[in-house]
Design a protein around this nucleic acid. Structure first.
Length: 440
RNA sequence: GUGGUAGUAGCUCAGUUGGUUAGAGCACCGGAUUGUGAUUCCGGGGGUCGCCGGUUCGAGCCCGGUUUAUCACCCCA
């Protein structure tokens, strides 16, 4: 039957689906604007190097990339951040700081589909650039939480896991690992709960050699920490030189400031310190965070963190930055599962009920006037019995029916019926617009 | 890229040990109905039973392959 199908992982939006899509976008925009972020967008198609430069050549297998007719290697964007970094870098000197931008756009990843993951999805991206301190994280995490609250979700439904790559660096440095080893260890930490113990040990052995077992115990202990005090006392048991003790004190002050800020906004209960979040291969440099549904049925709702080095890496000036992304797919699934996706009914203001061919022209005249004045008006395109037309009027959700049959035509009036309370009044033709103005 | 599960109408599904022309509900369209919305009644359109092959007198049903969807692994920016 259907010879042509949509491509795997690409959705079609029938009107009822599109209404839900619009709802999501609307809340996203609303909340972003409440936090005074400005909307922008980048190109959907970029040069392939933009993405391989940021994430390495391996990601090419996950990209929708091809050679264009001019022989350029190009790719549909898998994420917005590189474009953003370039745009900011290009005008860095002229932009007011902090730079607070958000974007809603389609992204493309050539991956095998599964629950919550498609090949084309829409993501809200929110980024705050130019602020090195945790005040930036406070704004972004607050915005993330308020967005989910804006959909009617509550503390029962979701929470935010908060972690810190800096803290990991400090910890592992104090244990005596160098930068390269730390990268490897964080890669393993990312899989900590998914891999069986033997495999964890085997992978740790690759970076830590014979210290693997000791390292594993240390990481296990570190992962259990869930308070600033706990972190402080964990470090207190280690031997630290003066420089790293100072760095730790500064970092704990950042934590304090971040948590106090969120607390002051009444959001403390949404935040859970969870150092298992390190966010894989990412370019993140400091605090990282992810939002999850509380029942653990879905993959992450949103994720983000600080990426202080990226803008410079993309050819810009030194530019601290924090950002997060929230996809429409998992969010939509969660909203439906929790009964927070409203049923949308497109309604019209008026439905014209037309007696016959003679009346039709008179009706079209009134319909045109109403539409020009901004009202939405529908009518049956083909002649039909009155009963049918009233049924159609009801199911259209119209508030009023405009009735013109032979009687009305003869008297030069339009009968206006309130479909809710079934009251009717006759309006002289030509006065309809004035009569209607007070009603809707 | 690897594996599990599934595929019958627009949707949800039934379909007996393999047996004549594949059904129901919902939805849609038309009529009863050119002067009033509910309910109802009557009728209609719709299907390559995912596709290809095999077994059989005979396949929606059994077997093989393939494809699509879905879930999980890998990955997750």
């Amino acid at each position: 039957m259907a010879t042509f199908k949509s491509l795997p992982g690409f959705r079609e939006f029938y009107p009822e689906d599109y209404a839900q899509r619009k709802h999501i976008f609307q809340i996203w925009r609303q909340v972003a604007r409440r936090f005074a972020f400005k909307e922008f967008d980048g190109p959907v198609l970029e040069s392939l190097e933009l993405f391989t430069a940021k994430s390495g050549p391996e990601i090419e297998s996950q990209l929708f990339c091809f050679e264009d007719k001019g022989g350029r290697q190009v790719s549909l964007r898998p994420e917005l951040t590189p474009s953003l970094a370039r745009m900011v870098a290009a005008r860095a000197n002229g932009l007011k700081r902090p730079i607070k931008w958000f974007s809603i756009g389609d992204n493309f990843r050539y991956e095998r589909m599964q629950k919550g993951r498609l090949r084309c999805f829409t993501q809200l991206n929110v980024d705050l650039l130019g602020e090195p301190g945790p005040a930036a994280e406070v704004e972004l995490i607050a915005l993330l939480v308020q967005t989910l609250l804006g959909f009617g979700l509550s503390e029962e439904d979701f929470f935010v896991r908060l972690s810190d790559r800096n803290l990991w660096m400090l910890y592992l440095e104090t244990l005596g690992y160098d930068e390269e080893a730390i990268g490897g260890i964080l890669g393993v930490v990312d899989k900590w709960e998914r891999l069986p113990e033997e495999k964890l040990l085997a992978q740790l052995q690759e970076v830590a050699g014979e210290r693997a077992a000791e390292l594993k115990a240390a990481v296990d202990g570190f992962l259990k920490l869930d308070s600033v005090e706990g972190i402080r006392s964990c470090f207190a048991e280690l031997e630290q030189d003066a420089a790293s003790a100072e760095a730790l004190a500064a970092r704990l002050a950042d934590w304090q400031q971040l948590l106090e800020g969120l607390g002051a906004m009444g959001l403390a209960d949404f935040i859970k310190i969870d150092l298992s979040i390190v966010r894989g291969l990412a370019y993140y440099t400091g605090f990282v965070f992810e939002a999850f549904d509380k029942k653990g049925e879905f993959r992450a709702l949103a994720g983000g963190g600080r990426y202080d080095a990226l803008v410079e890496k993309m050819g810009g000036p030194d530019m601290p930055a924090v950002g997060f992304g929230m996809g429409d797919v998992v969010l939509g699934e969660l909203l439906k599962a929790r009964g927070k996706m409203p049923e949308f009914v497109d309604t019209v203001d008026f439905f014209a009920v037309i007696g016959g061919d003679a009346e039709k022209l008179a009706v079209l005249e009134e319909v045109a006037l109403l539409r020009q004045a901004g009202y939405s008006v529908e009518y049956q395109l083909k002649p039909q019995a009155f009963g049918k037309q009233f049924k159609a009027a009801t199911s259209s959700g119209a508030r009023f029916a405009l009735i013109v049959g032979s009687e009305e035509l003869e008297k030069g009036v339009v009968k206006l019926r309130n479909l809710a309370d079934r009251s009717e009044q006759e309006i002289p033709r030509g006065q309809l617009l004035e009569a209607v103005r007070g009603l809707i």
